[in-house]
Design a protein around this nucleic acid. Structure first.
Length: 211
DNA sequence: CGTTGGATTGGCT
DNA sequence: GCCAATCCAACGC
């Protein structure tokens, strides 16, 4: 068993925590006792006063956990079919969270396939909806304590050097789409999309220099 | 109370 | 590349 990330780790602004989470491990223990482990390669920060955040318009039943103390899981249902999991950051009353978007599966791959199907390891946790499906995370785990709990927690993995961290626009949002608050491990095969990819559905600047 | 539109994914053109 | 699937919170009337 590795070293768990303490509450203090999450008690910082999401823009600090999001890149710091790259290279850490998410450990999940299923109801039947099976352990799953995956190493984070992609995160997104959602800040207070962030138009793209679910908490932007204030406290609701759905986003209440975001306003609570740090180190808890915020889980919501997206597009009526996929769950997305976040880690609440900062301090109580300050609504900020990190969306866990993609990871490299390390343990329990066969158990993940019981829900994901017979897909390659690369596709088990490649995307927020796929990852929650692999880890059996849904609204039932909304509010779970990831510091002292037994269902899901985080552990120190392999620190990612800052030169290997790439920031870019967040995926799939329409407001505040210019804020580079998506953080990726450069070159990782397990990213939901290549680092730096633009999410704009319509006309993209396409100014990215291709090689 | 009806409408709208997602922090997505997978399948089809 | 495009679009349907499918739930429900947020918002407008």
């Amino acid at each position: 068993m590795g070293r768990r990330l303490p509450r203090s780790f999450f008690q910082r602004p999401s823009l600090v925590v999001a890149p710091a989470l790259l290279g850490t491990d998410v450990v999940r223990v299923l109801p039947d006792g099976t352990s799953l482990r995956a190493r984070i390669v992609e995160t997104e920060a959602y800040e207070p006063d962030d138009p793209a955040s679910h908490a932007f318009r204030g406290l609701t039943v759905r986003n209440a956990v975001m306003f609570g103390p740090p180190g808890h899981l915020y889980v919501y249902l997206a597009y009526g079919m996929h769950h997305c999991m976040n880690i609440v950051c900062a301090t109580e009353g300050v609504a900020s969270a990190i969306l866990l978007r993609a990871a490299e599966p390390l343990e329990g791959l066969d158990a993940m396939r019981e829900r994901r199907g017979a897909v390659p390891a690369r596709d088990l946790c490649r995307g927020p909806g796929r990852w929650t499906q692999a880890f059996a995370v849904d609204r039932g785990l909304d509010g779970t304590d990831v510091v002292g709990g037994r269902d899901l927690w985080l552990e120190h993995g392999v620190a990612t050097p800052s030169r290997r961290i790439v920031a870019g626009p967040r995926i799939g949002i329409t407001s505040a789409a210019d804020r580079p608050w998506r953080f990726c491990v450069a070159q990782s095969r397990f990213l939901s999309r290549p680092a730096g990819a633009i999410s704009r559905p319509r006309s993209s600047p396409a100014s990215r220099s291709s090689r």
